[in-house]
Design a protein around this nucleic acid. Sequence first.
DNA 1: ACAAAAGTGTTAAACTTACACCCATGG
DNA 2: CCATGGGTGTAAGTTTAACACTTTTGT
Lengths: 232, 232
Amino acid sequence: MTLNTVAVTVDLVLLTIRSAELQVLLIRRAIPPFRGAWALPGGFVLPDEDLDAAAARELSEETGLRPGYLEQLATYGTPGRDPRGRVITVAYLALLPDQPLPVAGSDAAVASWLPVSSVSPASSESPGSSGALAFDHARILADGLERASAKLEYTPLATAFCPPEFTIAELRAVYETVWRTRLDPRNFHRKVTGAESFVEPTGATAIRDRGRPAQLYRRGTATLLHPPLLRP
Amino acid sequence: MTLNTVAVTVDLVLLTIRSAELQVLLIRRAIPPFRGAWALPGGFVLPDEDLDAAAARELSEETGLRPGYLEQLATYGTPGRDPRGRVITVAYLALLPDQPLPVAGSDAAVASWLPVSSVSPASSESPGSSGALAFDHARILADGLERASAKLEYTPLATAFCPPEFTIAELRAVYETVWRTRLDPRNFHRKVTGAESFVEPTGATAIRDRGRPAQLYRRGTATLLHPPLLRP
DNA sequence: ACAAAAGTGTTAAACTTACACCCATGG
DNA sequence: CCATGGGTGTAAGTTTAACACTTTTGT
C-alpha cells in the first residue's frame, strides 16, 4: 500500500464565530493513527471528482451547512505527514455564519466547534480539548487563520461570517474577533459604509440589544475593498 | 492506467524580466498530447519527495538557474485536464533575475523565454509563438501573474527579479513592467528608501546609461512592506 | 554647455484618528 | 429620565501626489 501510490485528500479549515469567539470545526478521530485526537474534517477525492467539488461535498457531508465562502488554501504533501503512506492533501478554507450543527453528520464521527484559541497555540486545557491536532493539521489551521485575517483587510470576506442581513456592529464584531483587536465603532461605520459596494442597506432596522435600532445591510457586489480596512 | 491511480506533478510559472518585458519560461512539447504546443515546465513528484523539493528540483533541472523566490501557487485537479488520465498538479511561482539560460537543460526539450504579452491573452502571433498553451496552463499562468502583481504591493518580492545589487531605477522598472504602468521616479525613490528594511544601500554607485551615478542597494530583511506600494 | 538621469524639497489634497456630540430605544 | 448602543461632525495629524529644483555624469 506504500508503493508509488499517492492518495489525494481534501481537508477543510471551517471557521465560524460563535459566542463571540472564532471557532473551528474539528472531528475526534475514532481510529488510528492519532486515535482520540482532534483533526480537520476531510476525505478522499473521488476518482472522477474536481478538487473544489470534493471540498464542497465534504463540507456538506460533515456539516450539512451552506458555506458563506469556500476557497483553496494550499496543498500539503511532505512525505511522512500521514504514517499510513503517501497522502497529499489539498486544504480548503471555508467561512460560515453561526448556524446550529444539524445533528451528527451522515459521514464521520463526532464533529464539534472548538475555539481556535483553545487548540491553536498548543493550548493547555479546555473542556473536551485534548492536546495537539492530528497529522500536520495545526500547521494547516494556522495557515487558514492567517489567510482569513489577511483577506478581511482587502476583501469583503467578513460578510461570509454574517447571516444574509446584518448590522454594522455585527460586521465589526467579526473583525474584532478574527483580529483580536478593538476597533472604533464610529470610524468603522464610516469606512464600511464608505467603501465601494461593500454593503448595501436593506432599509429595515433591527434592535439587537439595548439602544437605538441599527440599519440592516446585506453583502454588496464588491470583490475587493476600496479602500481596504487595515489591521491597526 | 486510468483506474483509481492519481499522478501528482509540479508545474512551474517561472517569471523574469528581459528586454524590459515580463517573460515566462515555456517548453515546446515534443510528444502528444498537445505536441508542438508551449507548456509550463514541470514533472512528476518522486515517490518520497516533498512538494517544495520537487519544485526546486524541476527548476534546477530545467534551467540550472538559481531562483530569487519560489512559492506554492495553487493546485489544479479538474478531471480531464490531462487527456492521459487523472493528473493533479501543484503549481509553483518562481521569480528570477535576468540570467542567460545555461544551454539546453539536462532534462527536457527546447525551453525558451517568451513575453507573457505574446502568450497570455490568446495572442495572435509572435515569432515562435504558436497559439494557446497546453493543458490548463493558460489559467495557471494567469493565476501566477495575478499573484506576482499582488505581492509586489505588500512584500519586497520585486527584489527577486533583480541581481544582488541594483539601483532604485532598476527596481522601479520591475514594478513598471509587471504592473504595466508608469510610476513617478521621485516619489518611488522616496517610498522605497523610506519603507522599513525594504532595501539597504551598499555604499557603491553605478552608472547605468547617461546621467548621474545611482546608489546601489541590496535586499533588506523585511518580509512585509510598511507602508505598502499600491498600484495606481 | 547641454541632455539625461539621480535625488531632495515643498505644497496642496486626501485620508486617518480621536473624540465631541446628537439620536432612538428599553427600562 | 437615564443608560446604552447607533450614527454624524469635525479638527489635528499623517500620508500621498505632483512637480520645481539641484546634483552629477557623458557627449
